[in-house]
Design a binder for these strands. Structure first.
Length: 222
DNA sequence: TGGTGATCATAC
DNA sequence: GTATGATCACCA
C-alpha cells in the first residue's frame, strides 16, 4: 500500500485524526509489514510506517515530508506518563560553507516552520505491535519559541564559525542542542579548526530537547 | 535514572 | 559520506 499525498492541510488533518487510537499492528498489517520485536535495529520503523499511511513523499530527499504543503512529519515517542521520551532530530549541523548563513536561511528554521507532530506510545512495557498512535496536530513555533530557537542557533553557529565545534556539548542550548549524528564514532566529515585549517570531525545534528517538545504537547492538550 | 554521547538501517 | 527515519545505552 501507499497512500496518495494529501492535497491540503485539511485532508492531512483528517487522515491524522483517523490514525488516532490505532495500534501499530493495524498499520503494519495494512501495509503488509512485519512488526519488529524491538527497535534496536529498526529505529526509523515507526516513522516510515506513518509516512506511508499519511502519504508523505518517501525517499531520502532533503525536502519536507509533505512537499506540496511545506509540512515536516515528526513522531514523538511517549513514556507511560505521556511525556516525550526522546529528543527530536532536526537536521545536520553545517560545518562548512556556513559563513554569512542567516537564521531564516538555516535548516532548523525551515524544518520547524510547520511540523505535523504525531505522538505515539513508547512505554517499553507495551509491545511495539500494541502501541497506539496518539492525536497528531500541525504546529508552528510561537514568536517566543522562534526567538529562543534563533538565539540558540546563533550561539552555536558563532562557535562553529570560530572553529570550536568540538567544544560544544549537549548541555548547551535552551531548546536546541548539538549531538553526534552518525552511524558510529569513526565517521568523519570536514570542518575548520580554530587555527583556520581544514580538519575532519564527527558529524553532528541539531536536536530539540524533550523539555521543548513537552511544552509543545502541553500547550496543545492543555 | 535522565540526559548525553553513540549508534542502527537503508538509499544513493 | 549524506540524506532519510530515529532510539540505544551508559554514566554522572
Amino acid at each position: 500500500m501507499q497512500s496518495l499525498r494529501p492535497e491540503s492541510e485539511e485532508e492531512l488533518s483528517s487522515r491524522v485524526l483517523a490514525l488516532a487510537g490505532k495500534r501499530l499492528s493495524e498499520l503494519a498489517d495494512q501495509a503488509n509489514w512485519t512488526v519488529p520485536e524491538n527497535l534496536k535495529r529498526d529505529k526509523g520503523w515507526i516513522g516510515q510506517l506513518v509516512e506511508l499511511h499519511l502519504g508523505a513523499s518517501a525517499g531520502n530527499q532533503s525536502k519536507p515530508d509533505f512537499q506540496n504543503l511545506g509540512i515536516e512529519l515528526k513522531t514523538i515517542p511517549l513514556s507511560a506518563q505521556h511525556k516525550a521520551k526522546e529528543t527530536t532530530f532536526v537536521c545536520a549541523v553545517p560545518l562548512i560553507r556556513h559563513i554569512g548563513l542567516s537564521w531564516q536561511d538555516s535548516c532548523v528554521y525551515h524544518k520547524l516552520s510547520r511540523v505535523l507532530w504525531l505522538p505515539i506510545e513508547a512505554d517499553p512495557t507495551i509491545s511495539i505491535a500494541q502501541r497506539k498512535i496518539g492525536q497528531g496536530f500541525i504546529w508552528s513555533p510561537s514568536e517566543d519559541d522562534m526567538m529562543i530557537l534563533q538565539a540558540d542557533w546563533e550561539e552555536f553557529m558563532e562557535l562553529i564559525s570560530l572553529g570550536k565545534v568540538e567544544t560544544i556539548t549537549a548541555h548547551q542550548g535552551e531548546y536546541l542542542q548539538i549531538r553526534p549524528k552518525a552511524a558510529n564514532a569513526s565517521v568523519l566529515t570536514t570542518t575548520f579548526g580554530d587555527n583556520g585549517l581544514k580538519k575532519q570531525t564527527l558529524p553532528r545534528g541539531f536536536y530539540l530537547r524533550t523539555s521543548f517538545t513537552n511544552k509543545i504537547l502541553q500547550n496543545q492538550f492543555l
